[in-house]
């Protein structure tokens, strides 16, 4: 899938995460800032990585500001950011 620009989704409220995603050059690069990084950083990165791979994104920069979001929230926010970065041309398969 081709990204047209930067996609942003989510908020900085407790239990949420803000995702900023843009086309990159060196694989999937995740810049994570989390209140629970030491405990869950590994899992958050994996969810971000898996979600990008589902859309076949190989080179992308993802900035994650996590406020204690559940995995399903991270997945939802990354998906929304990807679809927004694709400029609304890709529809999620509902």
């Amino acid at each position: 899938m081709k990204l047209k620009g930067t996609g942003i989704a989510g908020t900085l409220e407790s239990g949420d995460a803000m995702i900023e995603l843009s086309p990159g050059k060196n694989g999937i690069r995740i810049d994570l800032n989390s209140t629970v990084e030491s405990q869950f950083g590994k899992y958050i990165r994996k969810v971000v990585m898996d979600t990008c791979l589902e859309f076949d994104l190989q080179d992308v920069d993802v900035k994650v500001q996590d406020k204690g979001a559940l995995d399903c929230t991270i997945r939802a926010r990354v998906t929304a950011a990807i679809l927004r970065a694709a400029g609304g041309e890709v529809q999620y398969e509902f």
Partner: peptide
């Protein structure tokens, strides 16, 4: 609307 739909979708699949 797009983000909320994805959020509820993922929450209901998981929780």
């Amino acid at each position: 609307k797009d983000a909320a739909r994805l959020l509820v979708y993922n929450a209901l699949k998981t929780i």
